[in-house]
Design a binder for these strands. Structure first.
Ligand SMILES: [Mn+2]
Ligand SMILES: [Mn+2]
Ligand SMILES: [Zn+2]
Ligand SMILES: [Zn+2]
Lengths: 137, 137
DNA sequence: TAATAAATGCACTTCCCTTGCATTAAATAA
DNA sequence: TTATTTAATGCAAGGGAAGTGCATTTATTA
């Protein structure tokens, strides 16, 4: 049993062939991925299976979803200490207008947001757009 | 010539009947609206016309778009001092999980966001979700 | 091995956004 | 005013991504 298989079982996710491939793919790329990215990476992949794979991953705290404002849902592997399950995912995301890639800036927590009287915050989504470090030169 | 007609002409938008109605509708409701909201408000309205009306409004600095993460584009009238045209729209938006309404918190500016070396910010989207003042009791 | 449960593949649906194009209305030129 | 040009509207269709139903395959458990 490989390390990835052990990891998935730890997360109560059965390590099927496809799931292992998807996990490996996401681990190799360090940026967030869209469903279509994975679909294109494997010629013999069924979109629905991938969709449900990501859904299962998300439900079991392996990935978290990112809404970067492009209209396309992105997914990123949760890092150690990612608490997107127990509470809101408080790190910010950066979307590059040039290379179109979205990254988790896990080290950059979202600052406290002041709200008017009576408003109760449960979740915060913060997306910064601009040029990433590869494209800003 | 009414005040609204003068306002629209000021913004280089021809004050057609439909445009005036849409503007009035948005002014009456203080929360942001979806295309379908307007569509439902007027029985005799064509979705495409409304779509293009909002697009024209946006291009001329009358409304700004809001991506509140619901997957449905919302629009809100720009207030005096709204600088969504010349630079990024820096105020935050609040989406209520209960009544599903999204409001501009124009008085609440987005705090400065620290980014890692090499990242260049051009735009920021901040959406807080939770319970609005009407629903938090 | 048999029974059960889970994962996958395929087809289809839904939802919203967007566009093409003919028609109608308005603005401008003659 | 009338003719010409330009803009707005209405209807139909297209596109993309998310999501579902169900039969089939694969894996697990009895
Ligand atoms: Mn993230
Ligand atoms: Mn706003
Ligand atoms: Zn980039
Ligand atoms: Zn509410």
């Amino acid at each position: 049993m490989t390390e990835i298989e052990r990891f998935l079982e730890d997360k109560k996710v059965r390590p099927t062939a496809m799931r292992i491939l998807v996990y490996k793919y996401m681990a190799k790329r360090q940026i967030s991925v869209a469903l279509s990215d994975i679909e294109n990476a494997f010629t013999k992949a069924e979109r629905t299976t991938l969709y449900r794979t990501l859904k299962t991953f998300e439900e079991n705290g392996i990935v978290h979803q990112i809404d970067d404002g492009t209209g396309i849902t992105k997914y990123a592997l949760c890092e150690i200490g990612c608490n997107c399950e127990i509470e809101q995912d408080l790190h910010l995301h950066f979307h590059c207008n040039n290379c179109q890639e979205t990254v988790c800036l896990t080290a950059h927590k979202i600052p406290h947001i002041n709200l008017p009287e009576g408003y109760l915050a449960k979740d915060v989504n913060l997306v910064v757009k601009g040029l990433c470090k590869n494209c800003s030169n």
